[in-house]
Every structure is written in C-alpha cells, then in structure tokens.
Design a protein around this nucleic acid. Structure first.
Length: 160
DNA sequence: GCCAACGTTGGC
DNA sequence: GCCAACGTTGGC
C-alpha cells in the first residue's frame, strides 16, 4: 500500500469494547490491542502528530463513521502485550522486544449522527475508498484528503 | 448466527 | 518456503 504521504486515517473500534462516547469521555486514548502487523506498521511508521482520524464503529448497528480525532503522540510500546492479565497478552512479546506499538489519539468531535457504511457506499466520490473494498478487514486504514473532506461534508450536512 | 475473506501458525 | 488448518474480522 502506498503510504508515503498519507496524513488522514480511519481507525476502527467495536463500540462494545470502545465507543465514540468512551472516547469523548476520555478525551484521549492509547490505541492498544492492535495485533496485526499492517495496522501496527501504519502506527509505527506513518502516523504523525496532528494527523486527523475518522473514528469508525465496526461490528455495530449500524457500522459507520461516528466522529473525529487527531494523533497526539507517536507510537510507543503497547504494554498490554506483556501483561498476562490483559486480553491482548501476546506470549511472544517481551519488554526488550515489545512487538506491538500504538499511538495516542485525542478526541475531537462526535458527529450528531453516525454516518453509516451504507451511505458511504452510495457516494460516487468514495467508490475507491479502501474501507469499502471487498474483503478489507484492516482496523487502521489510510484515507485520502479528498475522501476525508467528503466524509466531513456528509457528516456536517446531516440534519439533527 | 452465518460465512466469506483474510492473516497466522506450524508441520514438513 | 509451502500450504493446510485454524482463528479472526466484520457485514449482513
């Protein structure tokens, strides 16, 4: 995946484990628990402070974009990987070689209404969006500036 | 709950 | 390094 200049992102979270309301309440969150190398590499190598993110609810009713955040801290070791009591424990991770890393994300905004996946699929200008690609399961995805701006426009045009 | 589409693991 | 088996993701 070409990621050289990517500056916009979409980050998925299942609302039953961490929702936009949790995010709003916490004001910022350490994006722990990612156990996929592609997603980890985005966080380690490509995410920079200030990058905007779309907060996305997956496995939800409905699934969709629910708000915005920004990267506030570059990736640091995800210590849940070496915590035996954590559900994210990974026996192959060690203190010296933590294996998993995560960024910190600041809360910015909760949309008045979720922007459902179904609506995103209807948008012609989003038809190439990675999120909408068949079989795409990555929990962290780069988003183009155009896609990001289009989604913002859709979200703000929803009447409350 | 189903299941397609992935990613990871481990035997060889 | 191959690849079958298994586990996970995530929409529906």
């Amino acid at each position: 995946m070409a990621t050289q200049n990517t500056q916009f992102w979409l980050m998925k979270s299942e609302p039953t484990s961490y929702s936009i309301d949790d995010f709003k309440k916490d004001k910022k969150t350490f994006w722990e628990g990612v156990r996929n190398y592609q997603a980890r590499n985005f966080m380690m190598n490509n995410m920079n402070i200030g990058d905007p993110i779309l907060f996305y609810h997956s496995n939800a009713r409905p699934s969709g974009v629910t708000g915005l955040g920004t990267i506030s801290k570059k990736a640091t070791p995800d210590l849940t990987a070496i915590d035996k009591k954590s559900k994210y424990f990974d026996p192959k991770a060690t203190k010296k070689s933590p294996r998993w890393f995560a960024v910190t994300v600041n809360f910015q905004k909760k949309f008045k209404q979720i922007l459902p996946l179904e609506q995103l699929r209807k948008e012609k200008s989003l038809k190439n969006m990675l999120l909408l690609k068949k079989g795409q399961r990555l929990s962290i995805l780069p988003v183009t500036k155009k896609e990001f701006e289009h989604i913002l426009k859709l979200a703000t045009s929803i009447k409350s």
